[in-house]
Design a protein around this nucleic acid. Structure first.
Lengths: 197, 197
DNA sequence: CATAAAACATACTAATTAGTATCTTATGAA
DNA sequence: TTCATAAGATACTAATTAGTATGTTTTATG
């Protein structure tokens, strides 16, 4: 990894952190370069425009992050219902970096940018769809193994679940992380009701 | 209603429409006054700042709108489960004004402004809580009447439902209104499972 | 009608924005 | 070492922003 690509990645990483806390449009290029040892010349050497940087950020920082936390844990899951619950629990308790106040990076980005920038919408849509499909095939798998009820519609449930997650992250912005626990309780009930008796 | 308070309300109404489509921070005062027959003098006569206008907009335009569509239909409901489903169906099929592309005005506002402006967060929190409480007492009522299962936790379910709605509106921003129908199908299953056998 | 205050209009300001023009310095291959 | 290019630095620009200063017009009330 040479120095140049490192500054590039640093810009993307730092931008992600700022965008996560302040929103994409509210984060100016001046903000970004001010919080790190980079000048405007460097920024515009690596990216033609703010939006090009933003898209690279979504693709190169957010996508791998989502893949590791949202896809990987599902593919090898023995019991999809438990795996999904534990994933949600993990997502909603990881206060290391993510903050209830700022919600989910991807969902916030969707809320702000989906109708503003078509490329952003496409890429974020791809990522959400990936998550849904991972859940869906995990549930389908559980159905074949006799863990999940036959009448369950995996794709439908996956949409219900991913949307529910997006929603609770939004709700958490208003009421704080206490709502996470209440949500998780009801989620568990919902998921268990999908399980074969 | 005298002329002055009418211009005030016009500013609030027009602002709401612009904010709904473009977001709060992306909507400039110049945008607002340009799309209607009002000048900057009038704007700043009625409001000390953009944020004061924004808060008035949330309180005086959004709050009554939410009350009429989210609270009223629940208080007199005979069967809460059917009432809730039909409310959701109504919310997700009303293409008169609301557009899947732009999501739910209140939820989008929360996503963008909850962590930026404390007053906005408070007021929007109040409105969401009102909705949750209306659902909760409606469910509690149904439980007493033997419509809703005894083991159901009304407040917990209310949070689950309102968050789910917020989530599907966000998802709709990415994939369009088709996801609404899929969501509604799973919602119906979820709600029916709360009903006494 | 007179007049004071309310309601609005116009022209500005200072700060911030994305982006550019032009420079300097670092790096790697011959 | 040389030198071309990659990488980065600096100083600008034009547009947009929220907000202000200072005007003019409308409206209600005596």
């Amino acid at each position: 990894m040479n120095k140049a690509t490192l500054t590039r990645l640093n810009i993307l990483q730092k931008s992600f952190e700022l965008v996560y806390k302040n929103g994409y449009q509210a984060t100016s290029i001046d903000d970004i370069i001010a919080t790190m040892k980079v000048t405007k010349g460097a920024f515009f050497y690596h990216f033609k425009s703010k939006d090009e940087m933003g898209l690279a950020m979504v693709k190169e920082v957010m996508r791998p992050g989502m893949y590791d936390t949202l896809i990987i844990p599902l593919v090898a899951a023995e019991d999809p219902l438990t795996a999904i619950y534990e994933m949600m629990e993990g997502l909603l308790s990881d206060t290391l970096f993510f903050d209830a106040r700022y919600g989910c990076p991807a969902m916030s980005m969707i809320a702000e940018m989906a109708s503003v920038n078509e490329s952003f919408r496409e890429e974020l849509g791809f990522q959400v769809k990936q998550w849904q499909e991972a859940m869906s095939s995990s549930l389908e798998n559980g159905r074949k193994k006799g863990i999940v009820k036959q009448e369950v519609h995996p794709g439908q449930v996956a949409l219900f679940l991913t949307s529910g997650y997006a929603g609770i992250r939004n709700t958490g912005k208003v009421f704080g992380r206490e709502v996470y626990d209440v949500y998780l309780k009801e989620l568990k009930i919902y998921l268990e009701q999908l399980r074969c008796d």
